[in-house]
Design a protein around this nucleic acid. Structure first.
Lengths: 192, 192
DNA sequence: AGCGCCTGACAGGACTTTCAGCCCACGGGC
DNA sequence: GCCCGTGGGCTGAAAGTCCTGTCAGGCGCT
């Protein structure tokens, strides 16, 4: 069930989305979760422990929501599936905003914290591979190297656009347009 | 010439590159610059003031080093100039690394700090415009809207690749290849 | 003297982490 | 069934710790 510890992790995701990894205050987290600050230290050794476990929690959750689809939903055509997967990260819903924000924070934190790098690199690799596979479905004749390159560009672009969106430099609708156009370009490029 | 204030800003860029925005401690900055903490507050109103002016300082400096060329160097062909400008941000030299890291940090911080957003959005706009102009030189017949879109994609991609590089998810050489390919794709796209 | 640049010292707070112990579910002995 | 001892989950309160931002004043230049 939603144990106390789990609900603290959920609360942590919300607080990080609101304030960032940098702005997470244990007291605020405690208030958000409706527990005492001491309980946080009971379950997580220290502030770093909170961060690590929350980031793990978040990447599990993200993997779930990008992959999962209603079991009874008809499978989408390859091209729509690709677009859907990528544009999913550019939506103004609480869950996506929360995950995107946290992902961006994780990425940014890893620049200064080597202990995060390995996990991050692995998660990135999985994500890129997933997109490369989708591209392969859209353009079955393309060489793997080309697919990998396109997937890397698309996912890196997505991260860039996402950060710009979240930092208020780019309206969401425009980000979506740019992303769609980039997908067109990459698909066309593979086709040629 | 290098006024005390300027040397504080240079030190701030170094400290941010080393510790991140959240890791910037006024005391550490003072030590790095070889001045008292009080002097920092004398020149910059508060911590946020330091951040804002450092952002400005960094984007000026980046503009300089991407734009400037030796006076006696022959002007490059448009296409090479474009490539050079974008790939300059993907180099493992102290100055570039420092600038890129600080830029990424400030971008990430702006997600949670509205006071940085306006400056950041402006700096972004200028940069995108610069790239759009270069693209316009390469493909003079392209409509402005297409140039703007391509420039936004290329700069956002560059930010994404840069962050991946700095966070250890992407080898530098590979990032450069991906960037070059993206430029090819966008230029080809404008040409059609 | 007046002014701009600069400093040491510290007040005041924001945050993290610890501590002593309460509460209650549970299992064993009667 | 009932009592008691135990231990994990949990908390209020406060001790630390670390920083930011301020203040009164020094120093040199015009």
């Amino acid at each position: 069930m939603a144990s106390r510890k789990t609900s603290i992790l959920e609360a942590a995701a919300r607080v990080i989305a609101r304030r960032g990894v940098r702005g997470l205050r244990v007291e605020e987290l405690a208030a958000e979760a409706g527990v005492s600050t001491a309980l946080i230290y009971y379950h997580f050794k220290d502030r770093t422990g909170i961060l690590k476990q929350t980031l793990e929690f978040i990447s599990d959750r993200a993997e779930r929501y990008t992959t999962e689809r209603a079991a009874d939903a008809p499978p989408l055509p390859a091209r729509e599936e690709l677009e859907r997967t990528l544009l999913l990260e550019l939506q103004d819903t609480a869950e996506v905003r929360e995950n995107s924000t946290a992902w961006g924070e994780l990425r940014a934190s890893a620049v200064f914290d080597e202990t995060l790098r390995e996990d991050l690199a692995r998660a990135t690799r999985i994500w890129v591979q997933e997109v490369a596979d989708l591209l392969g479905t859209v353009r079955p004749m393309s060489p793997a190297v080309a697919l990998a390159g396109a997937a890397e560009r698309l996912t890196a672009l997505l991260e860039g656009l996402s950060t710009r969106w979240l930092s208020g430099s780019l309206p969401l609708a425009h980000a979506r347009t740019l992303m769609t156009d980039a997908i067109d370009a990459e698909v066309a490029r593979l086709g040629s």
